[in-house]
Simulated assay, not measured.
Amino acid sequence: MTSRVLYLFGSAAPPVLEAGQVIAEGQGRGWDVCLGLTETAAKWLGPQLHKLEELTGHPVRSEYKLPGEPDVWPPADAILLAPATFNTINSWALGLTSSFIVGVVAEGIGKRIPTVTMPCVNAAYVRHPAFSRSVETLRGAGVTVLYGEGGFEPNPPGEPRPDGYPWHLALDVISAVTG
């Protein structure tokens, strides 16, 4: 039996440091996981990148491939972008694809790849009017955005979430939207 392929993408927010655990959980749910990161998140995980590549069996990517280079990942059956920072959510909604992961998820909308995202933003960022418009834009494009009641709820600036980042919810929903 061939595993379904999950692109797990992460931005530079503290929950990205738990990528290894999330990959293992995704694999336990039957996913072949490919890890993609923003350039800053890749720097944060720098010492772990080799272990993460061994865990997934795929290169960790944070940059676009060069023209003419073959893709090193199998095609995605689903995409989970979490944690998604304020910048990532807004860039994606505006179609600003200078970041590898934002480019892939933006194209994923057009390819109709089931996509789930869960922000990791504090309460000050969500008061900015661009954030709610971006969430609405992504939802309107068919992206499942786990934000608000039943999803990620922002914490005050500088304070960690007492119950941690709800990775289990993101993995449950990506399984549900892909059947």
Rank of each mutant, 00 (worst) to 15 (best):
Thr2Asp: 07
Arg4Lys: 15
Val5Gly: 08
Val5Asn: 13
Val5Ser: 08
Tyr7Asn: 07
Tyr7Val: 10
Tyr7Leu: 15
Tyr7Asp: 14
Phe9Ile: 12
Gly10Pro: 07
Ser11Asp: 04
Ala12Met: 10
Ala13Pro: 03
Pro14Arg: 05
Pro15Tyr: 12
Leu17Ala: 14
Gly20Tyr: 12
Ala24His: 11
Gly26Phe: 04
Gln27Phe: 07
Gly30Asn: 13
Asp32Thr: 05
Val33Pro: 14
Val33Arg: 11
Leu35Glu: 08
Gly36Asp: 11
Gly36Pro: 13
Thr38Asp: 05
Ala42Ile: 00
Lys43Met: 08
Gly46Gln: 06
Gln48Ser: 15
His50Met: 00
Glu53Met: 09
Glu54Lys: 11
Glu54Arg: 14
Leu55Gly: 02
Leu55Thr: 03
His58Met: 09
His58Asn: 07
Val60Tyr: 02
Arg61Thr: 06
Ser62Leu: 01
Leu66Trp: 15
Pro67Asn: 02
Pro67His: 04
Gly68Pro: 13
Asp71Gly: 08
Val72Gly: 12
Ala78His: 01
Leu80Ala: 11
Leu81Asn: 01
Leu81Val: 02
Pro83Lys: 06
Phe86Pro: 09
Phe86His: 09
Asn90Arg: 06
Trp92Ser: 08
Trp92His: 12
Gly95Trp: 06
Gly95Asn: 02
Leu96Asn: 08
Leu96Tyr: 15
Thr97His: 03
Ser98Gly: 15
Ser98Met: 02
Ser99Ile: 00
Ile101His: 09
Ile101Phe: 05
Val102Met: 04
Val105Trp: 01
Glu107Val: 01
Ile109Cys: 11
Gly110Val: 12
Lys111Met: 15
Lys111Gly: 04
Arg112Ser: 13
Ile113Thr: 15
Thr115Tyr: 05
Thr115Asp: 06
Thr115Pro: 02
Val116Gln: 07
Val121Met: 15
Ala123Asn: 10
Val126Met: 06
His128Asn: 14
Pro129His: 02
Ala130Ser: 14
Ser132Val: 15
Val135Ala: 15
Val135Ser: 09
Glu136Lys: 15
Thr137Asp: 14
Leu138Ile: 03
Gly140Asn: 03
Gly140Thr: 02
Gly140Ile: 07
Gly142Tyr: 02
Thr144Gln: 12
Val145Met: 09
Leu146His: 03
Tyr147Asp: 06
Gly148Gln: 00
Gly151Thr: 03
Pro154Glu: 12
Pro154Gly: 06
Pro156Glu: 13
Pro157Val: 08
Pro157Gly: 05
Tyr165Lys: 11
His168Ser: 15
Ala170Ile: 04
Ala170Tyr: 05
Ala170Phe: 07
Asp172Ile: 01
Val173Trp: 00
Val173Gln: 05
Ser175Asp: 15
Ser175Trp: 00
Ala176Val: 00
